[in-house]
Simulated assay, not measured.
Amino acid sequence: MISIQQLSKVFKTNTTTIQAVDDLNLRIDKGEIFGVIGYSGAGKSTFIRLINRLEEPTAGDVIIDGQEITALSKNQLRLSRQEIGMIFQHFNLLWSRTVRENIALPLEIAGVSKEERISRVDELIRLVGLAGREDAYPSQLSGGQKQRVGIARALANKPKVLLCDEATSALDPETTDSILSLLVDINEKLGLTIILITHEMHVIQKICHRVAVMEGGKIVEQGEVVDVFSHPDKAVTKKFVEQVMGKPDKDITEEAFVQSVESGKVLRLHFVGETANQAIISQVAKKFDVEINIIQGNVKQTQSGAYGSLFVHVTGEETELEQAINYITSTSVEVEVKTDA
């Protein structure tokens, strides 16, 4: 669906040169929700603006559904952008226009007849949950309602791709969840390909199928969300995962804690996918003569499955302990011995 090849963007001033996007290669499949995450300055917002040429690339190609966006003339690009919707962090609504008039604007620009505009706008208002607010002005709307207007406006011309640039960053957590649920609903109902830029890992966790991590203008890690979350490789990715999983307590691996464990083993159990839904602890307690105490843990759901970690203290005879660990490992749960008294 979307192929990005050796994409680069360099900003130059009289005194400095900034490589905002550096030789970026990426493929995004039709109908998926693809997340791009990075801290401020990573290049993610520049990257998303390169896709529809709100920023002109210094080098590289962007190909959407077989059409090379980077090779289009200005007139061709204007038509092509009708198939690429975009929503923004700060909504970018026209404050002198009502909800209905804001949503209708792209249709007016595209030369759609008044009758068709009215029908399409009514359809979109129902889709994004704004029935009854059609004649309100942006100043009369909450942040979540404003973003719903922005989403409806972006969908007006029935795009193939929806670009979301920090679309929930200005919203409170509850409103963020409602907007993310709306995006999932739109993705499922319309089969729309969504590219979502964010610096918040819980946004990626909640709705994305795959994710790319950006740092210094480059993609440093990418893959299925559940895989990247469960096995983060780069330091920057590990920091993002800690946003939703939290850090294990330091004393679990500190010498003082090790010395305080008089018997047994402290294990870190790592769950991915279906294993996160299994009652491993109760199964082990029933099958083997061991006692298990949960120290701490966390399991999260993603679009492609659950993942998480659990720290447990297991005591019993050495033979029983080894059999219990072997049994846990046989269920595809990864086991790491943190302390061994």
Results as ranks from 00 to 15, higher is better:
Leu155Cys: 06
Pro106Leu: 00
Val161Thr: 12
Glu134Cys: 07
Ile18Tyr: 11
Leu24Gln: 06
Thr237Glu: 02
Lys286Arg: 14
Asp172Ser: 02
Pro106Thr: 02
Ile109Ala: 02
Val21Thr: 09
Thr15His: 09
Arg49Val: 10
Thr193Tyr: 00
Asp249His: 14
Lys287Met: 11
Ser119Val: 11
Leu94Asp: 06
Thr176Asp: 05
Val213Arg: 00
Gln243Tyr: 07
Arg133Met: 07
Glu254Asp: 15
Cys164Ile: 10
Gly66Met: 10
Leu77Ser: 04
Asn92Phe: 09
Glu262Ala: 14
Ile292Asn: 13
Lys218Trp: 01
Ile252Ser: 05
Gly297Arg: 12
Leu50Ala: 13
Glu101Val: 01
Thr329Tyr: 15
Ile33Tyr: 01
Asp22Glu: 10
Gly132Ile: 14
Gly144Leu: 08
Ala20Val: 09
Gln222Cys: 10
Thr331Ile: 10
Gln303Leu: 14
Ile37Phe: 04
Val244His: 03
Asn277Met: 07
Ala42Cys: 06
Gly132Asp: 12
Gly41Gln: 09
Glu174Trp: 02
Gln283Ser: 13
Glu254Gln: 05
Asn75Leu: 08
Glu274Ser: 13
Val266Pro: 11
Gln296Lys: 04
Val10Met: 01
Val62Tyr: 05
Ala256His: 09
Glu32Ile: 09
Ala131Val: 15
Ile33Pro: 07
Gln6Val: 09
Leu269Arg: 07
Arg53His: 10
Ser119Leu: 12
Gln67Ser: 11
Asn102Gln: 03
